[in-house]
């Protein structure tokens, strides 16, 4: 989307047909919430997709059912990939019902990810709402890996209820670090919940960062991202240092099918991560 944002490599011609998925085998399955599943997959044969950067996505394919765009939540040098999927339609329903040994198809990675390197030297605030956490998971680990390159790191994670929190145990391990500040909040909870209650924007005033030198990475439902970005900007974070990840219907993921258009942008090709400064005027208009 922007000149200072790292550009994804052009999807190489050597990848073969741009719409042909590559078979991957499901290695393990974690039930995150009643409707959300994390899949760890690995290449079935010699073919694998190129490595991805935090914030990019793939098209995940269920044989005989169809394809959906899903963010990459993690990966390793062996070509394993982590995807967290919520059952919302027939394709995601099929994907959330897979078991180890099953096959999925993957093509990608696509789009522009989070410009984590741009945040070096300043403070970082990561704000995730619900299933906005998976596309930010690798950002968190990138920050951990290069922890000395960044100032203060604030993580705010909100979900509707305690049982909607994903990566629960993993996130508890983040809490044990003394170089990261973590706030977890839920919109509504019963008596079993000892943490904060309230939407994520209510936690922004408590974040500790130096606003003009802070980079924000925000992912979640569109309304949550819009209100969070507004709250951050109100605290003095620059709109050009605030990044959000847009979600739209996608069929092709390479800018040919037209579905994901948001104003002048193809979310698949120009995003999904955008600079808030560029999107703010369009986010103010309904049904763009």
């Amino acid at each position: 989307m922007l000149a200072d944002q790292p550009r994804a490599p052009a999807h190489a011609e050597t990848m073969g047909h741009p719409f042909a998925p590559i078979p991957y085998t499901v290695r393990s399955v974690v039930l995150e919430t009643p409707d959300t599943t994390t899949l760890v997959v690995e290449p079935h044969g010699d073919q694998r997709i190129p490595s991805s950067r935090p914030g990019q996505f793939v098209m995940l394919y269920a044989f005989g059912v169809g394809e959906v765009p899903i963010g990459v939540a993690g990966g390793n040098a062996e070509g394993q990939l982590i995807h967290t999927v919520r059952s919302a339609g027939k394709v995601t329903q099929a994907l959330t019902h897979l078991t180890p040994g099953d096959t999925v198809g993957i093509r990608g990675p696509y789009g522009h990810g989070w410009p984590v390197a741009n945040a070096r030297g300043g403070d970082v605030v990561v704000v995730a709402g619900g299933l906005g956490m998976p596309p930010l998971r690798e950002v968190v680990y990138e920050l951990f890996r290069h922890r000395d390159s960044f100032g203060r790191v604030e993580i705010v994670y909100g979900a509707r209820t305690p049982k909607d929190l994903v990566y629960y145990n993993e996130i508890q391990s983040w809490r044990r670090r003394d170089d990261v500040r973590l706030q977890v909040t839920v919109d509504a909870a019963g008596r079993e919940w000892y943490g904060d209650v309230g939407v994520v924007t209510t936690r922004i005033p408590d974040c500790r960062f130096d606003p003009p030198k802070t980079t924000a990475f925000v992912c979640g439902p569109e309304i949550m991202m819009k209100l969070t970005a507004q709250a951050l900007v109100e605290r003095g974070v620059k709109p050009e240092s605030t990044w959000i990840s847009m979600e739209r219907n996608m069929k092709c993921a390479i800018g040919l099918c037209g579905h994901c258009q948001f104003g002048p942008s193809f979310v698949c090709r120009d995003g999904p991560v955008f600079c808030y400064r560029d999107l703010a005027p369009l986010l103010a208009v309904r049904e763009v």
Partner: peptide
């Protein structure tokens, strides 16, 4: 130029 993609499985899947 907008298009959609459809999956058409055989009867035996």
């Amino acid at each position: 130029f907008c298009s959609s993609q459809e999956e058409v499985p055989s009867l035996d899947a």
